[in-house]
Amino acid sequence: MCDQDQFEHDRLEYEARGLVTRRQFGVLLGAGVSMMLPRVAGAVTVTQSDVSITTPDGTCDAFFVHPATGQSPAVLVWPDIFGLRPAFRQMGTRLAESGYAVLVVNPFYRVKKAPTAEQGGATPIDQVRPLAQGLNEATHMTDAKAFIAWLDQQKPVARGRKVGTQGYCMGGPMAFRTAAAVPDRVGAVASFHGGGLVTQAPNSPHLQAAATRAQFLVAIAENDDKRAPTEKDALRETFTKANLPAEIEVYAAAHGWCPPDSRVYNEPLAEKAWARLLALYAKALV
């Protein structure tokens, strides 16, 4: 997960194979450059704001966006190692336009306010890896509880509806552990090119998630699967044994293919993953 040398090797390979797609307009190469994502059919009008959330360890800066009217199911979004930035604000807004109240957090708030990666998804991994290394199971759990509790207090959030959570890269284990931290609230969990979902430790994220009643979507990058070919099997076996619905698929894309500012962004496969996410939330957030 997020190994700089391996990342560069894979990026060049996937570019050579034509599996990296960057449109001429709308590609975010830096943290401050605007971008475009495919428009949402029937998009609703949304309201957005920067918010501050009190946690046991301080104050987290986050982005909250939701339909302008009514109440909607809530979704907690955990960004990848490059953190809260324009790309994830766009992704959160797009999800809100599909009918959800979306909170995108800065997981590195203990150290630095967003943006935490100067060049967005083009930032060298070595510059942001220390931020990720400062997080662990305890921070995942306490943050998840604080963020879900905050969402439950917001007027745009539908009462009595399950909450969804999704994570990218290092955010995958965070999403899994969110379900474990608040099992009575989380109904759907999605991981996109998540790293560290399966470990040999008794507190492995996949084992903790399997103790919940959530439904799962796990989208695995092809190069991650090559490096850990048994992980998908462990996930399937664990979720099947727990009798939990789980869609687990390996995508013919490189680690990081979903955020549009990624150097390995693959729009067709990112759109496929996005469609599967919406299908999961439609059936699980009831």
Rank of each mutant, 00 (worst) to 15 (best):
R39K: 15
H9E: 10
R89V: 13
S52E: 15
R11K: 15
Y14R: 11
G92K: 03
T93A: 09
P115V: 11
R129Y: 05
E13G: 03
M91E: 11
R129N: 09
T21L: 09
A31C: 08
E118H: 06
N136C: 10
V111H: 07
S72R: 07
V128K: 00
E8K: 09
S98W: 01
Q90S: 13
R17Y: 04
G134I: 04
V75Q: 02
A122D: 13
D80V: 04
G134C: 07
F25T: 14
T69D: 13
G42A: 09
V104R: 00
E97C: 06
D57N: 13
P86H: 08
G42Q: 11
I81F: 02
P38K: 14
P130N: 11
T116M: 07
D50I: 13
R129P: 01
Q127T: 07
P79E: 01
T47D: 15
S52R: 15
N106C: 10
D57H: 10
A16T: 08
L103M: 09
D80S: 06
V27P: 03
T21F: 05
D10W: 06
V65S: 04
E118S: 11
R11A: 14
D80C: 05
Q133C: 07
V65E: 04
P56A: 11
P124N: 11
V46A: 11
A114D: 04
R129M: 14
E8A: 09
Q24A: 15
A74T: 05
T116R: 00
G30E: 12
A132L: 09
A68R: 10
Q48T: 14
Q133P: 02
E97N: 06
P73M: 08
V102E: 02
V102T: 13
D61N: 13
V128R: 00
G83V: 00
E118M: 05
A96Q: 05
A87V: 11
T93S: 10
A96Y: 04
A16M: 06
N136E: 10
Q127I: 02
P124C: 11
E8M: 09
D50H: 12
V77I: 08
P73S: 14
V111W: 07
Q90P: 02
H66F: 13
S98Y: 04
D80Y: 00
D126K: 14
A74H: 03
V33N: 07
A41K: 15
G18H: 12
Q71M: 05
P79W: 00
L103P: 01
L37H: 06
L28Y: 00
G99A: 06
S49M: 12
P56R: 10
P86R: 12
A74Y: 01
T69M: 10
A87T: 12
P67T: 14
V105W: 00
V44G: 14
F88Y: 15
A114E: 01
Q90N: 12
G121W: 00
L95T: 03
A96W: 02
A62K: 06
K113D: 15
Q48D: 15
A101S: 15
G42P: 07
V46D: 05
G134Q: 13
K113P: 02
I125M: 09
G18R: 11
T69A: 14
G58C: 05
G92V: 03
V44N: 05
H66Y: 15
E15R: 14
E118C: 02
Q119F: 10
R89T: 07
D126W: 08
E15P: 02
L103G: 03
A62L: 08
A16N: 11
E8Y: 08
D10A: 07
